[in-house]
Design a binder for these strands. Structure first.
Lengths: 144, 144
DNA sequence: TTTATTTAAGATAAACTTGTCCTAAATAGA
DNA sequence: TCTATTTAGGACAAGTTTATCTTAAATAAA
C-alpha cells in the first residue's frame, strides 16, 4: 500500500509529534532508534518532510526535529503521504490505463473509486496528534 | 495499489475471458495489442498465470491462451492478484512493523484492517467473467 | 574564534521491479 | 519427417526504490 518511504515517514512523524507534545525536540538518532528504521534513509525522508514544511528542523547542538504549535492540531496522515509520495495513491487508473475516466472507464473504474475513497477518508480522518496520543498512552507501538 | 505485473495480468485475463466466452483461443500478440502492454513482459506474466493454473496455454500453431469452462464462472480478481503478487496486499503491517497485531498494534492497525477489508471485498466480489461481459458490451475498455 | 553537534545535500551502491532478447520445447499441418 | 507457429524458460538490461556514505552548512557553547 504505502512505500517504505511513507511507512518510515508516518512512523517518524508520530514519534516526533509525541515529543513535540512535551515540547521536546528530537534528533535523527533518537527517531531512527525509536521507530527502528535505517538512519541515513530516515534522514532523507525527514529532509523531504522538512522541505515540504510538514516538520521543522533545527541544525546544530540541541537541534533536531519538531512540529510547530500551529500545525500540531491540523496535521493528518494525508499531509505526510502527499509530501512523500505525491498524489500517486489518489490519481491514475487502477489498471494503469492512460486515459481512464467515467466516460471511458476501465473495467474496475467504479470499484476502484470506492476503495480509493475509503483510503482517502482514512488518511484525512486520522490526525497525527491523535495517533501520537495513542502511542503515549501505550495503546499502540512504533517498532517490532 | 497494484504492481505493473498485476495491472497487465488483470487486463490480460479480462481480454482472454472475453474471447473464451466465444470459444476463441488468443495468442500473446493479440493480447498485448488488445491491452497495450509490452509483449515480452506480458509473456512472463501469462507464463506465471499458467503455472498457477489461472489460465491455460497451448503451444504451437493455433495455440494461445484460454480459460477452461470449469473456471470461467468462478475466477475472480483475487485469484489473479494472489497468483501474481501473492499475499503481499493482505498480510503484513501497513506501517511495516514486523510484529503488529491486535495485542501490540501499530497506530494504524484498526484503520488499516478496514481498508484492507474493503480491498479484499472488491477483489472477491468481482468475477472476471462479469468484467469481460462489460468489456464486450462496450461498457468498459482495456487500453488508452 | 574554535570545537562539537546536528541537519542538508549530493554521490553512490544495493535490491527489486519492469522490460527485452534469445534459444528450447511443443505441436499442427504439409 | 520437416517446417512454421507458438508458448516456456533463462539470461540479461534498464529503471525505480531503498539504503549508505561523505562532505558541507548551520549553530550552540566554550
Amino acid at each position: 500500500m504505502f512505500s517504505k518511504t511513507t511507512e518510515y515517514g508516518i512512523r517518524a512523524m508520530i514519534f516526533i509529534m509525541s515529543n513535540s507534545l512535551q515540547d521536546k525536540r528530537v534528533r535523527l538518532k533518537e527517531i531512527a532508534a525509536a521507530i527502528d528504521s535505517p538512519e541515513s534513509f530516515t534522514a532523507k525522508i525527514l529532509q523531504n518532510l522538512s522541505k515540504a514544511n510538514v516538520v521543522d528542523s533545527v541544525k546544530g547542538p540541541h537541534g533536531g526535529f519538531e512540529i510547530n504549535k500551529d500545525k500540531m492540531q491540523t496535521l493528518t496522515l494525508i499531509d505526510v503521504v502527499i509530501a512523500l509520495d505525491g498524489n500517486k495513491l489518489f490519481e491514475g487508473c487502477g489498471l494503469g490505463l492512460k486515459a481512464c475516466n467515467s466516460e471511458k472507464p476501465c473495467p474496475l473504474h467504479q470499484h476502484f473509486l470506492e476503495v480509493r475513497t475509503k483510503i482517502t477518508a482514512m488518511l484525512v480522518e486520522n490526525k497525527i496528534i491523535d495517533l501520537a496520543q495513542d502511542l503515549q498512552t501505550g495503546l499502540s507501538f512504533l517498532k517490532q
